[in-house]
Design a protein around this nucleic acid. Structure first.
Lengths: 179, 179
DNA sequence: TTATGGTATATCAGAGTGATATAGTTGTCA
DNA sequence: TGACAACTATATCACTCTGATATACCATAA
């Protein structure tokens, strides 16, 4: 376990409340989606290793209960704290859309424009999702601390701002391709 | 070879001119950086498979020359064309910075602000890089077709617009965290 | 009652990353 | 001219991550 980033996502989630692998996936899809993703094929093996390493423990398992609920251990908390102080390196990026666009100069214009319109629509949907999440956050404000509200809201604002920029770029580029 | 995206990046690059594995890496780092990355550990095995599959061929190897230069074959060109027509699915995203931020609500404020300032600086550097690339593109405009200029410029504009949005968000968020 | 959908765990092949090894070539500057 | 640095070039490996698939249980609605 040297450079497994999923470990930090899992530790972060478990630091909020004990969860099953399935819960972790649900949380990723719901709250982290937009900037982080996890899948079962990685969650379960990582949980197994983290258990071996003493970062997490099985906190709740009734006799006949089949689900396995994990909680963070003091060692896991220390690991999470150390991660906050570490310098964050930039991740490798891969945008298949941009790759396709770069090599599209000899494609029919209408195909490229359709591609851009499609891309724009997806980003408009993203904004709608973020706005809904912002509404939900404001509705449920009493459930979380002011601190946490500030941070979650910052993340939602980033999603909105970034997607707006892309939409603006799509409009400009479609315009330019139409002469 | 079912879902290897590097294959399309390589086909795209080879459709411009025959290249060695090293050339492909250089092109990725110089032109594609910002939205696409390749590394040797994937380029060489992929080239090997693509050669087996008849997508590419060794086009130039003098008697005593040790470097292996690859060119795209008609089959490779068809594969590339088919890719343009395919729907582009969104790629999974992983921003370690955003993950860290989400779980940072109990960290000392000054640490979080330092993190954000660092993040902002990196995006300012990105913009400078894109502006330099835009200058280089304008200087060398006679070397490439008008079509290609349009597309490369669009990509650079996207880099600039997106990074500006992030910088704006950083300013807003730092402000908010300082009360 | 049967099917639909959500909960829950798990495995696997293959894609992609980052580090490292090796060796030849070119440039430079002392 | 010879030594050293920097670049060119190919390759492998352990590990991370993805996406598909399999299995099975449970609730509930048609």
């Amino acid at each position: 376990m040297l450079n497994n980033k999923s470990m930090y996502a899992i530790l972060g989630i478990l630091s909020l409340s004990p969860s099953t692998g399935y819960d972790i996936k649900k949380y990723s899809d719901k709250v982290l989606s937009g900037f982080w993703n996890e899948n079962f094929g990685h969650i379960y093996p990582t949980l197994k290793k983290m258990l071996e390493d003493g970062m997490i423990e099985i906190v709740y398992k009734e006799k006949n209960e089949k689900k396995i609920r994990y909680g963070i251990t003091p060692k896991g908390k220390r690991e999470l704290e150390a991660w906050f102080l570490e310098e964050t390196m930039q991740q490798p990026i891969r945008s298949e859309f941009m790759l396709k666009l770069l090599f599209s100069s000899s494609q029919p214009r209408e195909n490229v424009i359709r591609m851009l319109e499609n891309y724009k629509e997806r980003h408009e949907e993203n904004i709608e999702k973020y706005l809904r999440m912002q509404e939900d956050l404001k509705q449920g404000i009493q459930e979380i601390s002011k601190e946490r509200f500030l941070f979650i809201n910052a993340i939602l604002r980033k999603g909105i701002i970034s997607n707006e920029a892309v939409i603006h770029w799509c409009d400009e580029t479609i315009e330019e391709l139409q002469h």
